[in-house]
């Protein structure tokens, strides 16, 4: 069996295994259909397309579940709900970016041994992150204000926390 077809089968098999219950029958259908496609590359592209289709279907199912849990209408959100979702997305993005940054700094310290430089590097990276967040707020303010507010709120909160942490642990008293 050619490599592209092998990859296609493995990919769709993984999709079948990991897809949500609601999408599994479709994923199985796509996997079975693969065996009737003659070209190996065509099979691979078929599998890639199917994977994105299942991902979108699963995302919709997850959103429907989320909407049910929090009392949103499944066919859309009102203005308040949209704003809340936007602000929460902003908060989530900011926290995720901060965690990513912390992981990068600590991994860098592990590999390069910054010794006494670590606090300075952390401060520099945090300042960069704050600049990044402020830039995102400015860029999103007109078109996606709730998300911008979420980012701004979280950036201020994290920045304050960080300033307090640095002053307590790394500055001479």
């Amino acid at each position: 069996m050619a490599a592209p077809r092998k990859i296609a089968i493995k990919l769709l098999s993984a999709v079948v295994r990991h897809s949500l219950e609601e999408s599994r029958e479709w994923a199985s259908a796509m996997l079975e259909e693969l065996q009737f496609i003659e070209g190996d590359w065509e099979a691979l592209f078929w599998a890639l397309g199917c994977t994105t289709a299942i991902f979108r279907h699963s995302s919709r199912s997850f959103w429907a579940w989320f909407a049910r849990q929090f009392g949103f209408k499944e066919d859309g959100m009102n203005n308040f709900q949209k704003r809340t979702a936007g602000a929460l997305a902003g908060v989530g993005l900011t926290i995720a970016a901060t965690i990513l940054l912390m992981i990068i700094v600590h991994l860098s310290d592990y590999f390069f041994d910054f010794a006494g430089w670590l606090p300075k590097i952390i401060i520099t990276m945090s300042a960069l992150a704050e600049v990044l967040f402020v830039g995102a707020v400015i860029a999103l303010w007109r078109k996606k204000r709730p998300m911008a507010v979420g980012i701004l709120f979280t950036a201020i909160l994290l920045g304050t926390h960080f300033a307090v942490y640095i002053s307590n642990h790394h500055l001479p008293r």
Binding site: W26, M30, F45, W46, A47, L48, G49, C50, T52, A53, I54, R56, H57
Partner: peptide, 11 residues
């Protein structure tokens, strides 16, 4: 239609 377009429609 490619599978990535067709299947979401069928779904």
């Amino acid at each position: 239609l490619k599978s990535g377009t067709l299947y979401p429609i069928l779904m």
